[in-house]
Amino acid sequence: MKRKIGLVVGVALVLVWCLLPVAWILALSFKSQAAVSNGSDPGFLPLDSFAGWSNYADVWADEQFRRAILNSIGISLISTLLSVIIATLAAYAIARLEFRGKKAVLSVALAIAMFPVVSLVSPLFDLWRTIGLYDTWPGLILPYMSFTLPLAIWTLTAFFREIPWEMEQAAQVDGATSWQAFRKVIVPLAAPGVFTAAILTFFFAWNDFVFGITLTSTEAARPIPAALSFFVGPDPFQRPASLLAAAAVIATIPIVLIVLVFQRKIVAGLTSGAVKG
């Protein structure tokens, strides 16, 4: 009984710790702009200053904001897709094939993942401007991929290693080419790994601020976190705090959706029943 109470209290504490900022932003997004500026409603809940959906409507009416959301969704999805495809193939090769420099590939990948992002920004800025990638989608997709690939490769390699060799051999005896065996047996079995890698990659791309703000200059490619920092309300001398809060909430929605969708796919023990064990 005592332990149960402890557990409940502990869980509650963690929940408050994690969700308080979210709740704060949500509350803020429903307060009226004026009340936030002159501090007339300092409470947590928007009581006197309840603004309804007006902040959301205002933000959504902003052409730049819609454009930034589109950029973010497009760039994140494309880098996730490419990253997962390349990582799947690479991880399969690392897990299954014997080749020289296998260890080197893995350690270099890890080293890249540990490389500080900031140190790459200025060289990339110069390079991208020279070759014309500055302020374009590919200009962001490329650095996102190079930072998420190592993690994806490591995750997937671990998953592929867990899949028994026999699965593939059975498929080959059943008449499959190596490619068919990979596509019809190995990839479905590695699905939890593939989706884990996809979520990690998507998060990285969606949340990135440093690349987003330095490698873009216009709404042609500027993603949402960078766009938020440039966000100005109708009055340039007043920080539009409640508008920003509403924008932040909207920017969170795709992440929540993605997690909900992918989470179902990350079912542990999908390989159970393949072999006796």
Binding site: V173, D174, A176, S272, G273
Partner: peptide, 29 residues
């Protein structure tokens, strides 16, 4: 390669495809 030898094999640990139903497992070849 194995697929061109037209032999059927039963493995020690069965090597069934866990993501497919029994029907699809049998239908796989």
């Amino acid at each position: 390669p194995p697929r061109e030898r037209n032999l059927a094999m039963v493995f020690q640990n069965y090597a069934l495809y866990p993501h497919l139903s029994v029907y699809e497992n049998i239908a796989f070849p």
